[in-house]
Design a protein around this nucleic acid. Structure first.
Lengths: 335, 335
DNA sequence: TTGAAAGCGCTAACAA
DNA sequence: TTGTTAGCGCTTTCAA
């Protein structure tokens, strides 16, 4: 940011006042065409670029929305972000993205930074819905939309998918095929998807008259390594599960890798359903049955809600729930 | 950004001047402990958060670096970004990410926006190395590091991988196995990787005494659809290639999908090597031989160069070249 | 249709 | 050790 030309340089060059220059920059009208031409030329000549920092200071708007996600390397998020970015660009809004790496501490820092920078709104998938730093957002009256993981604070909108329903359907599909011993690879229980997907599992088990078995419940962290650890754990059991349900994409990948390493045959020896579709699902044999959700839609709705919140000063707390669908392929065998 | 508490509110609350408050906020020392305590309390009481916009205006630093990538949904970039973000966070710098969707026009807008916001530096994988808007970055004296795709402008650093070498090795591996008709799925020729990977192909063909055949050269756009179109094109040839080399990950995925749709058997009927590793590579049968590169390292080096450029006012143009490696798996058969 | 000037919230030089 | 004050570059009254 070295001695760039300022609005004053342009004014001098054009022989007018800075107020007039400001008027043409912001297209407010009420400037003689001839004057405007002079100014436009002066802008070109000086290479002037409006200083958004100074502008933000006056208008108290940054035209920027902050996006906070837990893990940029989980392909689910780039898809959602892509949707948000496209919509934001249409509306001439800009996005700041930061990823917390599933750490509530980092999340707190990022929120602080976003507040300092003065974002107009925030879209967040929180690493921990009990993170006290989330309340900072409210204290500063920053319009906020939670996505994928619920935040129970007043005036925060939530765009969620019906995890219970999604995992219930997955489980029902497994159980209808006669499986009785079904292992689950859970996500963190302090996140909505982690908790709710486990709920769907429990609901299905109960409905089909089956008891929960602690040995068949593995608590993972949504990273692929826990998928592989879970499979190893299940494999070492004296009574192995005949089917496994994995609660997210990354853990599914880890699990499938481990299945292969262990020579535990997918489909014939152990059925499998994963939450979230993944690239490899249709490439492996048998292809993988998964719970699918509309990531693009999720991002778009979140953006629309945020936009509305920012520009209409809406203060209530809306909740949108999308229903995922079961994509039945070949990885569940009949018993 | 509604009537948030300002430094003045804190000063009033603590009964001191704003200068003193500023001193403790910025940890400059020279403040009596008792005064400092009063101020810290006042900050808590008022819920004050430093306004980074106003601060940036004075110190002419935003502590923000802009990252521009062509496609956030290409998993190569999240990996690189992740590395940059981690390093940036360590140094208390923040990142703004925007993706151009491979459009030079959008890229221009994003650059403009970054300039307006006053980023301290930019890391960019350009959609078009001839984009005239890139020069804006120089005019405004913004330290810039190009990553993956070269930018030939004075004072721009480049962190590249040796595409020629990588694709040469891939081709050499194919040709050594006796293949003579090798199709290539190229990327856009106005990008470094697109152009150079094609060069490596040509170099290998020449060295092995083979003629180029226009029918075996397909010009794609680095998206998966062109991978599948390319395979279809090759399949319809009266003399089909016995091996295919794909120039990026997404096109490889599209190509493999099409291979299956066409029942054109990978390995036995057509050998295949892809540039960049992909998740499915080790999941399919036969597993896919690929050119691998160090994405994390790429991001880290780029960040280090940028950081150095920003804080030492270095003006020369460094160039770092990383060498990719061939990961030989099973998708190339001997003829 | 234009210009002068106040002030956004902050930092830093200077003074006390 | 603390306070006063001049801007940073811009937008926006108010006046001309």
């Amino acid at each position: 940011m070295n001695n760039k030309p300022t609005i004053e340089d342009v004014a001098k060059e054009a022989g007018v006042s800075i107020a007039t220059v400001s008027r043409v920059i912001n297209k407010q009208g009420g400037v003689k065409e001839k004057t405007e031409d002079k100014i436009i030329n002066a802008i070109k000549k000086t290479g002037y670029i409006q200083n958004a920092v100074a502008r933000s200071m006056k208008v108290k708007k940054t035209n920027t929305i902050g996006i906070i996600i837990p893990d940029i390397e989980n392909p689910f998020f780039p898809a959602v972000i892509s949707a948000i970015e496209n919509k934001a660009r249409e509306k001439n809004l800009y996005t700041i993205l930061s990823s917390t790496n599933e750490s509530a501490l980092t999340e707190g820092k990022i929120i602080g930074n976003f507040l300092e920078r003065g974002v107009d709104g925030v879209i967040i998938t929180t690493a921990d819905k009990n993170n006290p730093n989330l309340e900072l957002l409210l204290k500063q009256k920053i319009p906020t939309v939670a996505i994928d993981r619920e935040i129970n604070l007043p005036s925060v909108d939530n765009v969620l998918i019906d995890n219970v329903q999604g995992s219930y359907e997955a489980m029902a599909h497994i159980l209808k095929n006669g499986h009785q011993k079904v292992g689950i690879i859970c996500g963190p229980q302090n996140t909505t998807p982690g908790y709710e997907r486990f709920l769907g599992y429990q609901k299905a088990m109960k409905e089909f008259g089956l008891e929960l078995d602690e040995k068949l419940i593995y608590y993972g962290d949504f990273k692929d390594s826990s998928g592989s650890k879970a499979v190893k754990h299940f494999f070492e059991l004296t009574e192995r599960p005949t089917a496994i349900f994995s609660c997210n994409n990354l853990m599914t990948i880890g699990a499938i890798k481990e299945l292969r390493a262990l020579n535990w045959s997918l489909g014939s020896e152990v059925s499998f359903v994963g939450f979230d579709d993944i690239e490899i699902a249709t490439f492996i044999q048998p292809s993988l049955t998964v719970v699918k959700r509309q990531m693009y839609e999720l991002g778009e709705i979140a953006f629309d809600l945020l936009h509305e919140k920012i520009y209409s000063n809406r203060l209530d707390s809306k909740k949108v729930m999308l229903t995922p669908s079961l994509e039945i392929r070949q990885s569940v065998n009949k018993i």
